[in-house]
Amino acid sequence: MIAVLALLAGVVLGLWLDPTVPAALQPYLPIAVVAALDAVFGGVRAKLDRIFDDKQFVVSFISNVLVAALIVYLGDQLGVGGQLSTGVVVVLGVRIFGNVAAIRRHLFRA
């Protein structure tokens, strides 16, 4: 409940403050968001599996974001930023799908 409230608060804050994304962060922000979403879905699934761990969630959240951004940064430096970010998004998307499937099984038993 608090998590959902925090998420909503963040959204409202983002809409309300309406900041502009610095150009330097522009390529990393979407990837970071997807990575964070992956962590969040993983957390929800863990909660449903009753193996949720606060510390693990926090660490995985932060490391997910950092690693995703790092990969994209590395890809940018190597000249394959676009492909690598696509790869990251695909991998994270697959994981999100898996997590969502698990959550769905939990919620609907199907």
Partner: peptide, 8 residues
């Protein structure tokens, strides 16, 4: 996350 999501 919500903040970034909205901004993005």
């Amino acid at each position: 996350l919500g903040f970034t999501l909205a901004v993005q």
